[in-house]
């Protein structure tokens, strides 16, 4: 099961190590992780994309994260109404002749060219992971020289549907 889990943490030294170390120690598979500050001072947010076997493993993951002193809140937001986005930078082999062709490919993805050199250009794209992967597939035939992705970051939409089939992983289930 691929799940999106967010954790609100106190921004203290070593907190990333605590969290990733914990996930490694308990044999959880992290697909991506992104970290950054939030609107509140001293508070950061981590977004993990994890691959877990079953619900019990998932419950363990959220509970173990919650046990960390520096972790304030853990939510599995996979099944909720969320906005989720990732940024990728893709450097593609290109010359003057095919620059326009690439421009044509990336335009529907609302990606932009942010750097050009003699024999390459760099595309910046943001959005859902499927979209980014689709663009990467399209650019691959041109020759990708370098690729960097931030990993997914996400939070809940301002309004949640009234009757959502939300799964509750609290122990009060």
């Amino acid at each position: 099961m691929r799940r999106i889990v967010t954790a609100t943490v106190q921004n203290r030294s070593g907190v990333l190590n605590r969290v990733t170390g914990l996930l490694a120690k308990r044999q959880f598979n992290i697909e991506s992780i992104s970290v950054g500050r939030t609107e509140a001072e001293g508070i950061s947010k981590m977004t993990f994309v994890v691959d877990v076997e079953d619900e019990r493993k998932l419950e363990q993951l959220t509970k173990q994260l919650n046990k960390q002193i520096d972790v304030l809140k853990v939510s599995d937001i996979t099944d909720k109404a969320i906005v989720a986005s990732e940024l990728a930078l893709i450097r593609v082999v290109s010359n003057a002749q095919i620059r326009n062709e690439i421009q044509g490919i990336i335009e529907p993805f609302r990606a932009s060219i942010i750097d050009i050199s003699k024999d390459s250009l760099t595309v910046q794209v943001t959005g859902k992971q499927e979209k980014i992967e689709a663009l990467i597939d399209l650019l691959r035939p041109y020759g990708i020289k370098e690729l960097a992705r931030t990993g997914l970051t996400a939070f809940l939409r301002g309004q949640q549907p009234q009757v959502a089939e939300m799964k509750n992983y609290s122990i009060l289930k």
């Binding site: 019990r56 363990q60 173990q64 919650n66």
Partner: peptide, 17 residues
């Protein structure tokens, strides 16, 4: 007292933290 122990190894029908 540790919620993470409940359900970790044995499925639990009545969890009491």
């Amino acid at each position: 007292v540790d919620p993470a122990e409940i359900g970790k190894n044995v499925p639990t029908q009545i969890p009491i933290v």
